[in-house]
């Protein structure tokens, strides 16, 4: 039994006077306890909206959510606001992209941790403070006894992200969603934060959904990878399969646009042509067709289905041929 089962999730933003915009379109995936699943895609591919929909954080007005999200036998999408609040932070945790703006600037980081402990674990202020210091210690914040009384602006970006991770894991959630947790950080700090995350989730057997546009992050962390484009999953595979033999031209393109250390000197990077368009249409054909090097007539006339193919799920009429893989030693 999967811990989290997302079935046919769709999110349509509707506003008076504008055309409804489909941000997420029939996304299905599941997460087993302790598993790390990646959601990969460019900006605008619907990965963040997917995570917000799972957490129930999308605005009630203007966003129409369909499908189902089952979390250990509970349907999350139909829970009342109050029931959802009881679960958020306790069963489901979330780490956001920007560690500075995600912390309240006017209260100490200690208070921001104890707040959650008091809320979900019924601790007194005193117990929570002791626990908070332990948590800070565990996420590798130096001198937690002192730092606990500091304000967010007194910490560096990496330390702030550690604090956010400590807060998200304070109640030992079964599932943690990390929405681009390293994007706002220096490269050296990125690696530290990622290894901290993977260490903590394996220690506590927490399942992790890693949302990122950075395939390097995926390569280091995820068991299963879902590649999203235009609100749909276009390829799902195990990490090794994906990196060794990417089949979808989009995934293929993403991998080819990563600089490689062992590439011949002067070899140009191959970017994906164009950019994500605002009104992606899956109705008439493949939404990636305008940017796809393999596109043929069928791609423009018939939307591809997500089908099992070669030990993975693939949504493509003209996948990259098996022998044609890029990535030996890419990452």
């Amino acid at each position: 039994m999967a811990l989290l089962d997302v079935r046919d999730l769709s999110v349509v933003f509707k506003r008076k006077g504008t055309r409804p915009f489909t941000a997420v379109d029939g996304v299905s995936f599941s997460v087993e306890p302790g598993q790390t699943v990646g959601l990969v895609g460019e900006s605008g591919s619907g990965k963040s909206v997917t995570s917000l929909a799972i957490m129930g954080l999308l605005p009630k007005r203007g966003a129409e959510i369909g499908g189902s999200v089952t979390f250990s036998d509970t349907e999350l999408l139909t829970l009342s606001d109050k029931q959802l609040r009881d679960r958020r932070g306790r069963d489901l945790g979330m780490v956001f992209q920007d560690p500075l703006s995600s912390l309240n600037p006017v209260i100490t980081i200690g208070l921001q941790i104890t707040e959650v402990l008091e809320r979900h674990r019924g601790m007194t202020r005193k117990e929570a403070r002791v626990e908070a210091a332990e948590l800070l210690d565990r996420v590798g914040l130096p001198d937690p006894q002192r730092r606990i009384d500091e304000y967010p602006h007194q910490l560096s970006g990496g330390m702030r992200q550690r604090v956010l991770i400590a807060i998200a894991l304070a109640c030992r959630p079964k599932l943690l969603i990390a929405d681009e947790p390293t994007t706002a950080l220096d490269v050296t700090i990125q690696a530290q934060i990622l290894s901290l995350l993977s260490e903590l989730v394996s220690e506590t057997d927490t399942a992790l959904i890693m949302i990122t546009h950075d395939l390097g992050v995926v390569a280091g962390l995820c068991d299963d990878v879902n590649v999203m484009y235009g609100g749909r999953i276009v390829e799902r595979a195990q990490r090794h399969d994906l990196f060794e033999r990417s089949r979808h031209p989009y995934t293929h393109g993403l991998l080819q646009s990563i600089p490689r250390l062992n590439a011949p000197r002067g070899e140009p990077l191959t970017p994906i042509r164009g950019s994500v368009s605002d009104n992606i249409e899956w109705e008439q054909g493949c939404a990636f067709a305008p940017r796809c090097p393999n596109a043929t007539d069928v791609c423009w006339s018939e939307p591809p289905e997500l089908k099992a193919d070669d030990g993975r799920m693939l949504r493509c009429h003209n996948p990259v041929a098996i022998g044609d893989a890029v990535t030996e030693g890419a990452l």
């Binding site: 954080l57 959802l84 609040r85 958020r88 945790g93 979330m94 956001f96 703006s101 707040e115």
Partner: peptide, 17 residues
């Protein structure tokens, strides 16, 4: 609509708080 309020909401902090 600020990030830290969204983050607090994601932690299940009560509306009043």
């Amino acid at each position: 609509s600020s990030d830290h309020v969204l983050a607090a909401t994601a932690l299940g902090v009560k509306r009043k708080t």
